[in-house]
């Protein structure tokens, strides 16, 4: 069943039309990838879903419920968690405090489950465990990305929005991040992934969409798009 549904969504920054009639569906339990060049509207789509941006027209439902009137901070309570582009680690908070912020909406913050969830983040990313008392601003880019993902999981999301998780990371981190994304998905979290690293993003996607200048130009199963010569030509650097 569809967990998230966008129909004919238009979003503008002032007079600049950033999204033009975007429609996409994210089925529960899937990994859905959005690929596209810089400025295609990927991050705008993410911010519209998480509520940081309002939409001009169109409809957006989450689990069958209209999302357009729901405040951004309340969408988190409904289970939509975004790992923002650039990670958004709180620089003055330690790793543990950042994880704690991730669970801000939870009422069981002193419980064993909460502590278990923190430990789970450390199981996914052992490097973070070594740095649990270090402040976020002093972590490397890869560590910050790990922390950002771990933090988003603290809210126990139903839908995890990942905006360019591989951006600016060393290759060994990229592999690790994508492995964890698959693990998270296997545990039942639906993932919407925005990536410039199209090979990786299509490789693990059940369903994928190609965005160009604010419009969806292609969609289909990830493996299908991955094998498509025009996509290969435009996004995969294969000629």
């Amino acid at each position: 069943m569809s967990l998230l549904q966008l129909s004919d969504v238009n979003v503008a920054y002032g007079r600049i039309q950033a999204l033009r009639g975007i429609s996409l569906t994210v089925q529960e339990g899937q990994i859905v990838s959005l690929i596209g060049a810089n400025g295609a509207g990927k991050t705008t789509t993410m911010k519209t879903i998480s509520g940081l941006l309002g939409l001009q027209s169109g409809s957006m439902t989450f689990d069958g419920e209209d999302l357009t009137k729901v405040r951004a901070d309340l969408r988190v309570r409904k289970g939509i968690c975004q790992v923002p582009e650039g990670r958004g680690i709180f620089p003055g908070m330690t790793v543990l405090e950042n994880l704690d912020m991730g669970g801000f909406v939870r009422s069981d913050r002193r419980s064993k489950e909460f502590a278990d969830d923190q430990e789970r983040a450390f199981t996914y990313f052992p490097r973070l465990a070594e740095r649990r008392h270090q402040v976020g601003g002093t972590l490397s880019g890869g560590e910050q990305q790990m922390l950002a993902i771990g933090r988003a999981l603290m809210a126990r999301p139903r839908l995890l929005l990942l905006d360019e998780p591989s951006m600016g990371l060393a290759p060994q981190f990229i592999q690790q991040i994508f492995r964890v994304i698959e693990d998270i998905n296997r545990e039942g979290v639906t993932v919407l992934l925005v990536e410039q690293n199209a090979t990786q993003a299509l490789g693990l996607a059940h369903q994928a969409y190609v965005l160009e200048t604010g419009e969806v130009t292609r969609s289909g199963p990830g493996s299908e798009l991955l094998a498509d010569p025009t996509i290969q030509d435009a996004y995969l650097g294969v000629s």
Partner: peptide, 22 residues
């Protein structure tokens, strides 16, 4: 908890919203 929300907004208002901070 609320105080942490204050710190989060001070450090990064957009991300604080994404954590569910009003």
């Amino acid at each position: 908890r609320l105080g942490r929300g204050v710190r989060a907004v001070a450090q990064d208002p957009a991300t604080a919203t994404l954590m569910g901070v009003n």
